[in-house]
Design a protein around this nucleic acid. Structure first.
Lengths: 345, 345
DNA sequence: CTGAAAGCGCTTACAG
DNA sequence: CTGAAAGCGCTTACAG
């Protein structure tokens, strides 16, 4: 019998272990392990005794210890820009569901769009020995992950490709989506179209600008520098950019917004102006259909992005995948009114 | 020297350990530990040799093993209803920030509003030996957590109190917020006011209904059963409930919506009708100000809810807290137009 | 300044 | 059917 004074079972912060259960039930450690894990080879009577001890002591297996011995931790890490951003909600949930189907838990964190913080977080997750990592990159140099990937950490990048390393990536068709959205505006008679996007070093921002240029070129419209503005997506800058494009003798008659944050700010700017200006935004958002007019968007499927990435992650872990690949998911143009307005002049 | 054939350092899935580093640097295990953890008492020369071995081998400390020895895992669990629900984004992010400030990682998962799944998730997190648990409860019986709490798992409930156990809880003032919102409608001349809320077994739904009743009673308005509808918040049911209250000889002239999902559906219903009907919703939501009219809401501070809960969690872990307590955060009425519409008749 | 031994709570590989 | 020993990769408590 264990001396209760030396091994207090009910003190806060101390938990009974298999050893305690074994002592209490008068069996060996391995027998407890068998019962806890539902392994065969235990007589019903022994099992009953062990189970009684488990219940009496409030034993719960320590999975951290288990994992140390087994090798895999049955957990995956998700590094995104900001948990509070509505775009990442469905994406996280989709990753979580796939993880759950594989018996894994999700550890996640926000990089706050800071490359250093992304690295810090990703490496902390590696130190916890997550089996794999889903990363929405903030930085553009991921060589810091090379030793980890080499050591067997499955890795998939989402929304934007990895920088300076060869890794799986699942992205939306930013180029094609933007091209289609801008072509839609051109089809409705616009020629002076403004593009407001995120900072040019962000891969998706550059791709969407490329799509804009392609659509304009396809239509034979020479693009003016004043029609393009790339930079931070805070409301102040976007407001300024939009106001400039709307001023002067030849104002733009339509906008293509590079992401949902830009779109929302442009909607606000336009709602304060009398003259109707057309708008197509990249990314769908809630209630876009309830605004007046409804906002036409190029929608990407955030949940599908997350699901696909997580599936590839577990395929890597199962050893099914050969070499890194980029998966490009299609976008979808949803017309709601704002993109079908004719030019005001 | 380790035999490279027996201990292949660069094979996928096998990582160098402190022992490998020690062998490679020709020092003892403890010396490596000192260098890795920045402990004093190592000559610069030895430190250099160890660091070189670390870099050459691509060693990264296994925090799971560390944690097993240390006791605390420096991770906390967050169980919420649905990661994809925009309401939980800022809440999660706030919990994450507090955890980060305390050097802890966040493991989170969705209960999908299923009490069984909530329990499964919470206990899985306990098995991983998270230091604490922040729970947005789906169920109303949390006795399953008693052994865990007794064993030292810090626990804080958010948004709704725990059921059948005494535990810390951080909630918004559902009763007061709803009462204020309904009083606001009454002040604008309404007497026939409909209440559409979530299922009555959900604590917040019951509290908000209670607030509605209190405001009506304060104004001396007898409440009719047909004006109150509690149940699932899927669009179909809410639509049906709203349509019924709007029909007949004495339709309601205003709605109080019990949460953001209900509000959004009611907005849709009203946008399809010619006659203006007033609306105040519980919970703020993005773009509420851009709708026509802007939607008046009783706002709760989701980030503050998460921040407060996480802070209490770490206070529990620091042994600062005495007994469980319920913290009630105030709500804020934001007028935007829909709540100030006069009665149509 | 440095390191060998014991131990965290499990599982693995054996032996009885 | 059952269990003792070794080991997962670290840290703790000592001793030199």
């Amino acid at each position: 019998m264990a001396d209760p004074a030396r091994r207090p079972d009910n003190r806060y912060g101390s938990r009974p272990t298999m050893k305690d259960v074994a002592t209490s039930a008068g069996v060996g450690l391995k027998t407890v392990s068998r019962v806890v894990n539902g392994e065969p080879g235990v007589t019903p009577d022994t099992e009953r005794r062990v189970q009684a001890a488990i219940d009496a002591l409030g034993f719960r297996r320590n999975d951290s210890a288990r994992v140390l011995r087994k090798g895999r931790t049955a957990s995956i890490g998700l590094v995104l820009e900001d948990l509070a951003d509505p775009f990442y909600g469905p994406l996280s949930r989709a990753v979580e569901e796939v993880a759950r189907a594989h018996g894994a838990l999700l550890i996640n964190g926000s990089s706050a769009e800071d490359p250093d913080r992304e690295q810090e977080l990703a490496l902390a997750l590696c130190a916890r020995r997550v089996d794999g990592l889903v990363i929405i990159p903030a930085g553009d140099d991921h060589r810091y992950l090379e030793p980890e990937i080499k050591a067997g950490v499955a890795t998939v990048f989402v929304d934007r490709p990895a920088g300076k390393i060869d890794a799986d990536a699942v992205v939306s068709d930013s180029f094609g989506g933007a091209r289609d959205g801008v072509a839609h505006l051109i089809a409705h008679g616009h020629r002076r179209i403004g593009f407001i996007g995120d900072r040019p070093n962000i891969h998706t921002a550059a791709e969407r600008l490329r799509g804009y240029r392609a659509a304009m070129a396809d239509a034979g419209i020479p693009v003016q520098d004043a029609w393009m503005s790339l930079g931070a997506t805070d409301p102040e800058r976007v407001r300024r950019a939009a106001a400039e494009m709307l001023s002067g003798p030849e104002p733009v008659t339509a906008f293509f917004a590079g992401n949902n944050r830009v779109t929302v700010t442009v909607v606000r700017v336009l709602s304060e102006r009398p003259r109707p200006v057309a708008l197509v935004g990249f990314d769908d958002f809630e209630l876009a259909d309830l605004l007046q007019p409804g906002v036409t968007v190029v929608a990407q499927d955030a949940a599908q992005l997350g699901r696909t990435a997580a599936q590839r992650l577990f395929q890597q872990l199962d050893g099914v995948l050969a070499s890194p690949e980029r998966t490009v998911l299609p976008t979808r143009l949803i017309t709601r009114g704002s993109g079908e307005l004719p030019p005001a002049d």
